[in-house]
Design a protein around this nucleic acid. Structure first.
Length: 277
DNA sequence: ACCCGTGTTCGCTG
DNA sequence: TCAGCGAACACGGG
């Protein structure tokens, strides 16, 4: 589930759930989610109060403060990660790490496929983590610098859809948002990145911003302010995307083309051949 | 049984 | 040297 909108939604949930609360207990099971894989490292946040809730691309950056100073928690949801709040004593399925708070609730990191990551960052020095430093600008936090984006794209032979998945270019766009943004911009996903004109790059940036904002607004509406799960997708949830996973459907933009699926760099792409050029 | 999957990294190849 | 690709990771659902 997690691209930028899902992670931003998780960030807002965390803020609501944990702001000013103290961690009274930490438990975790050994798994590749933890870096290092030892549950012991997570004990650094025990006794600390969560005070800051940030996001960079698909990364959640939580800061807790204790008498000893700050501790950072770096969370990446991978493919199937989600944060869940439950009263103490209830353990949700696939819980890999749990933080008990001083309000009788516990926050659980659940991840079926274990592609996510949870790591303590000493002193909350997120900027010194190489993987985070390598991220490109976050469209919501930093905005998109058109000139810089055009320059970067200008040197890439890759299909534009594949280029958009590179987190060093723009942080937070994933497989769904890449298809959705290109559809909004009316750009064929197969075009070499370097072939985009200045005007098309501008349209693409607008498409990215609008697609992210529209998806985020859906979550707010669907889950509401008091939800206990920072999630998006549950079985039976209707697909509200314009093209993603809509192969065979009529294009909602031009109302004439048929949404088509193709595979690029091993990932599904969806687009309308009639209005994306 | 078989294929697919909202992410990232690693190793091979040309 | 490096862009580009497929595989791998792990597990459930259609």
């Amino acid at each position: 589930m997690p691209e930028l909108p899902e992670v931003e939604f998780a960030r807002r949930c965390w803020e609501r759930w944990a702001n000013g609360r103290r961690v009274t207990g930490v438990t975790a099971t050994v798994s590749r989610v933890l870096r290092p894989a030892t549950p012991r490292a997570l004990q650094a946040v025990r006794g600390a109060r969560f005070v800051q809730f940030e996001r960079r691309g698909k990364n959640l950056l939580l800061t807790a403060r204790s008498g000893h100073g700050k501790v950072g928690l770096w969370s990446h949801l991978g493919m199937t990660g989600k944060w869940v709040r439950r009263p103490v004593g209830e353990l949700p399925r696939f819980a890999r790490a749990s933080f008990t708070l001083n309000d009788g609730q516990a926050l659980h990191y659940c991840d079926m496929r274990l592609f996510g990551r949870l790591q303590v960052v000493p002193q909350a020095r997120f900027a010194e983590v190489p993987e985070l430093a390598a991220l490109g600008p976050d469209p919501l936090v930093d905005g998109i610098d058109l000139r810089r984006l055009a320059d970067r794209l200008g040197s890439l032979r890759l299909p534009i859809k594949v280029a958009l998945l590179d987190q060093r270019l723009i942080a937070g766009v994933g497989n769904i948002q890449a298809s959705e943004a290109l559809h909004r911009a009316g750009i064929d996903p197969r075009r070499p990145a370097r072939s985009l004109s200045r005007a098309e790059v501008a349209r693409l940036a607008a498409g990215i911003r609008r697609s992210l904002a529209a998806t985020l607004a859906r979550f707010d509406r669907a889950v509401g302010p008091d939800g206990d799960i920072a999630y998006v997708e549950e079985p039976g949830t209707p697909n509200f995307f314009a093209v993603y996973d809509q192969a065979g459907a009529r294009c909602p933009r031009c109302r004439k083309g048929v949404v088509t699926r193709l595979v690029q760099a091993g990932r599904s792409t969806f687009f309308c051949p009639r209005c994306q050029h």
